[in-house]
Design a protein around this nucleic acid. Structure first.
Lengths: 343, 343
DNA sequence: CCCTCGAATGTGAGCGCTAACACTCGTACT
DNA sequence: AGTACGAGTGTTAGCGCTCACATTCGAGGG
């Protein structure tokens, strides 16, 4: 009695290229050619193969393909603070752009920024054989760690980026802050206060710098400065302090969420916005127009950024020499929360 | 002259198990055993292998492993509307819980809900050889499509779930709405208006039902009902209409973002919150406490949900027969926007 | 009619891993 | 002393694909 071939216990195996080949009466290589859209296949052969594929419900085994080609078609992304508007928008945008470019995107969201967690995330991505890594973490330390990692694959930065930096794409935070502050100065304010983000975030320092420079350009002295942590709570606290100092007529808040807190605090201090105090935010979150009052803010094109980042990544994978950072320009959106100073 | 072995042009190959084995003076299988933590390896052998791994910077080739084991260690997730608080929180939570459980998570965010886009997403996930799929799309149609797909792998639902449903986990929306509405009725309101989410979202209908039932339980007639689309803009519009009808003293809004719009509209109509009108939201977004006034809302434990969903998925992968839906209970968070009716 | 050449297809090896089984010991039992 | 056994290790055969090369086939030129 002939011995049964050793079958893997349980489930019936998925059809393989060989199965398709047999059914179509061709070799497995021809099936491979069809799948890879080689022009060297006669039309009627191709049709028979395609039919066989459909009939068997064949699906190419990507693991085998990866093994043979030594490519994964996958890029990794590490992000953090996904509860915040910007980071989450960027993550979504990169993911989408990656798919559009034909890559699978593996995302890892850091719960905590530390050298260890970052290394761990990168490690997990390397385990997945990603061909490149997009780092969307704006924290100062994170960027240093990443820069010092010297990975065997391209690494692209998309947050906390400065002009000219290699392998990086970003939105020009400095320009955005300049826009916001100049808008207030143009309205006639002699000085603008600032509620910044946490200053270990590169973007927070860049926005802060833009705010200062706007004053410098006009030989004006910047108003008081309070460091927040992006949260509405910190904005509220900052707003309370601002509400108590009568000489502040304008505030540039580094994001809309903090601005929400600032608005609330100003209301509670009995200061009207924009009659007594003008407030400008940053991010243009979808709710910004429904703050009380609707808030003037700075809009960033995140989806463009995602596309840009993926573009850069793909170029790097194709051997292009480290292209320098491209910075997108944000835009000011004027709403009801900014007006000329009282009197 | 002996012929050179055919080397792949370009980059030096990554070290393989064979390289490690050679360096450690063992067979590749022993290396495999060490990597898989087999107890059948003597301690000093293991140490030599570990040392060799470190020295060579060896990293196991997952493609080869997948090919040999016919397992991917990857689960897929399809989500949608990631700009909204709930969906984005759930996506993050599932991702995190998946990692904790030792799985890689491939997420696809739908840009548009349609049978085609859903099929496409599932297709892409199957191409990645995911072992199971978590569907986090609360849209009615999406759920129908998914249910009708009959995939060869487990599918777990985490939104738009009803009690008792197999392979599903969720948060009890009906109970949350009941909580919110009863809170208002307890305060003495005779009837509560409702700004619902779009009614093709299961969760919107569930919240609406909870609101109705709360009235039914007390033989009261529910107040007027307006359908929104989760956005602050739609909330604003609804709020404007509510602000014009003097008999409404309480509103249950189906999410906090719309509630923000409602608040703004009520302010503009000159109706004070909570003195004239009480407002209760849903979601407890981080900004909720900084609305003007801070809003009473319903809190959902998304991270628990993520863990629950992954747990379910893993159980299904281990052959457990389709366990029924578990619903988590949301909690009411009382803040300043709800108070007894005027008089 | 043979030869050439390019288009179309087939063949075989090998990617790096795991599973199954074969083997070699030393130890414990008869 | 011989046998049995299990711990520790090695050997071999795939997993399903792509690559490089071999082969076949038909059309066109001498």
């Amino acid at each position: 009695m002939p011995q049964q071939p050793p079958l893997r216990a349980g489930a019936a195996r998925n059809p393989s290229m060989a199965d398709v080949a047999q059914r179509a009466g061709v070799s497995h290589q021809t099936v491979s050619r069809v799948l890879n859209e080689s022009p060297l296949v006669k039309d009627d052969t191709r049709e028979r193969v395609v039919a066989a594929i459909r009939e068997l419900g064949y699906r190419r085994n990507n693991a085998a393909r990866m093994l043979a080609t030594n490519r994964s078609g996958r890029i990794g992304m590490v992000s953090a603070h996904l509860a915040l508007h910007g980071p989450s928008m960027i993550a979504t945008a990169v993911q989408g752009a990656g798919h559009e470019a034909g890559y699978q995107v593996s995302a890892i969201g850091l719960l905590e920024i530390s050298e260890e967690s970052l290394r761990d995330a990168v490690d997990r991505l390397l385990d997945q054989a990603v061909e490149a890594i997009v780092v969307a973490v704006a924290h100062r330390d994170a960027i240093h760690v990443v820069r010092g990692l010297s990975l065997p694959i391209p690494v692209v930065l998309v947050q906390g980026v400065t002009a000219g930096e290699p392998m990086a794409a970003g939105i020009d935070q400095h320009a955005g802050a300049l826009l916001a502050t100049e808008h207030l100065l143009d309205l006639g304010h002699r000085s603008v206060a600032h509620v910044s983000g946490p200053l270990d975030w590169i973007e927070a320092t860049q926005r802060r710098l833009g705010w200062r420079h706007a004053h410098d350009h006009r030989d004006l002295l910047p108003g008081p400065e309070i460091e927040g942590d992006w949260s509405a709570a910190s904005g509220y606290e900052a707003g309370t302090r601002i509400g108590h100092s009568d000489d502040v007529t304008a505030v540039f808040v580094a994001n809309d969420t903090m601005a929400l807190g600032v608005l609330k605090a100003l209301h509670e201090c009995g200061r009207r916005v924009p009659e007594d105090v003008s407030v400008v935010g940053f991010d243009n979150i979808p709710e910004a127009a429904y703050f009380w009052p609707a808030i003037t803010t700075v809009d960033q094109q995140f989806s463009d950024l995602g596309r840009l980042a993926v573009d850069l990544t793909v170029r790097a994978l194709e051997g292009d020499e480290a292209p320098a950072a491209t910075l997108l320009r944000p835009e000011l959106v004027v709403r009801a929360s900014s007006a000329p100073p009282p009197e």
